[in-house]
């Protein structure tokens, strides 16, 4: 099957204080049609650089090597139309002085060739799809009037407004509390299936990734450590670093540190 996005020996570097910094090196992977691929890594792993590179959002001064191909598309992908991007902080990705309706309608108008009236109608449908309470009156609300979780729903509505083939969520739930995080993850899952989108889910949380992704790619220091089906990564990782990430996860089923410490005292 043709992949939706195909990365071949992708490298990204930029100059910082006169020295060349390599953010990504020799990354080859594919994002399959309709799949949910998670990118896992710690600070400095290059996971966000990867998302920005695919979305064409890196600054012009960045040096990019290798190829990013969209075989199904047959043209250069357009941000907003072919790629929807959801950032970590919806407060800074939404425009504070435009109403919710205006900013979603703008995407629909720009990419779908609708007129304003149709675009507003489309915006209302989208707010309904992301389960925002009372979509009709939310259209005229401003971002600051909504809670963090509601703002992220609006950002998602905007990202999917033009029916993109790929949705990129870059730490999209990291600033939310766990209950709202679970709701947003459920929403993303639902939309991916409904629209047949592929999902690139960037996260530092391997447990969260295991709940959402078909495959997981582990990144460290700008390199791809390993990529495999979620089940294989979680149950039988081949790389020591992946094992380390799994061990560092503090689930509700592991031995508490406190108990270990107190057991140590007794012996």
């Amino acid at each position: 099957m043709t992949p939706r996005v195909f990365l071949q020996e992708l490298g990204v570097s930029y100059r910082s204080n006169g020295t060349e910094v390599e953010a990504l090196r020799d990354i080859s992977l594919e994002i399959r049609t309709g799949e949910r691929l998670a990118i896992i890594g710690e600070s400095g792993s290059g996971k966000s650089t990867l998302a920005l590179a695919i979305a064409g959002l890196l600054p012009a001064s960045t040096r990019i090597e290798g190829r990013i191909d969209w075989p199904e598309l047959g043209r250069v992908p357009q941000n907003g139309r072919d790629i929807g991007f959801v950032f970590q902080d919806p407060a800074s990705s939404l425009n504070p002085v435009l109403t919710i309706g205006e900013q979603i309608a703008e995407v629909a108008r720009t990419h779908l060739g609708l007129n304003w009236r149709q675009s507003y109608k489309r915006a209302e449908e989208l707010l309904h799809r992301v389960h925002l309470p009372d979509p009709a009156s939310a259209l005229s609300a401003f971002p600051h009037q909504l809670s963090g979780g509601q703002r992220q729903r609006v950002a998602i509505a905007e990202a999917i407004a033009a029916r993109p083939a790929l949705l990129i969520a870059d730490e999209a739930t990291s600033a939310l509390d766990t209950i709202v995080q679970a709701e947003i993850v459920t929403l993303i899952q639902e939309l991916i299936v409904q629209d047949g989108m592929s999902l690139l889910f960037i996260s530092h949380d391997i447990a969260l990734a295991s709940e959402i992704a078909d495959r997981i790619a582990v990144f460290r220091y700008g390199r791809l450590v390993e990529i495999a089906d979620t089940n294989r990564i979680v149950t039988a990782p081949t790389e020591a670093y992946t094992r380390q990430l799994l061990d560092a996860h503090m689930g509700l089923d592991v031995e508490p540190l406190l108990r270990k410490a107190e057991a140590g005292k007794l012996s």
């Binding site: 766990t178 209950i179 995080q181 679970a182 949380d205 391997i206 447990a207 969260l208 295991s210 709940e211 979620t230 089940n231 979680v234 149950t235 799994l246 996860h249 689930g251 509700l252 089923d253 508490p256 406190l258």
Partner: peptide, 27 residues
């Protein structure tokens, strides 16, 4: 006690927090 509350939350919000905590899926 932390272990008890997490293992067996009584309040609605406690239950919701436990349910929402990401779990490593070892299918």
């Amino acid at each position: 006690p932390a272990a008890e509350v997490v293992a067996n939350p009584k309040s609605a919000i406690g239950k919701a927090l436990v349910a929402a905590t990401p779990k490593l899926l070892r299918k």
